[in-house]
């Protein structure tokens, strides 16, 4: 779609949407939201970009190679966090307090909740973007 107003507004809005998505992911253990919600917001910003410009531009922004790496590594992080608990002498995926500050409600609390939320958020964003660009856009052979 070649609309100057739409493209300008999208350029202005995209960083704000992305910062909000990152905020929802990072504060997932403190405020409403979390990995799934924040990842969807992050992915929606790139979907907005794809709808405003074209799907090819969004694919240049988020190529398949990067998607493969992100998808694989976020599941791997999830499993490694679980195995780290075994290394510390607990069961698989047991929550271990890895942050020293015990004060409830601050950012660095919750043990494994924070890294797991981060992994989920990145993965959901990647999945949403990749599904959209491949199902919506027709690639030239």
């Amino acid at each position: 779609m070649d609309d100057l107003v739409l493209q300008t507004i999208t350029r202005i809005l995209m960083p704000f949407i992305q910062v909000y998505g990152i905020f929802v992911i990072v504060n997932g253990h403190l405020s409403p939201g979390g990995g799934f919600a924040g990842g969807t917001i992050l992915g929606a910003s790139v979907i907005l970009y794809a709808l405003t410009f074209n799907v090819g531009a969004a694919e240049d922004l988020y190529p398949d190679d990067l998607a493969e790496a992100v998808e694989s590594s976020s599941v791997l992080i999830f499993v490694l966090v679980g195995l780290f608990a075994i290394l510390m002498g607990a069961n698989f995926l047991t929550n271990i307090g890895i942050f020293p500050s015990p004060e409830t409600g601050t950012l660095f609390t919750g043990g494994f909740v924070t890294p797991l939320t981060l992994a989920i958020g990145v993965k959901v964003a990647s999945t949403v973007i990749t599904l959209f660009t491949h199902l919506f856009g027709e690639k030239k052979p």
Partner: peptide, 12 residues
């Protein structure tokens, strides 16, 4: 869990 968001605590 030391987390105020119960939903996230249950999920993760």
């Amino acid at each position: 869990v030391n987390v105020p968001n119960i939903v996230t605590a249950i999920i993760t």
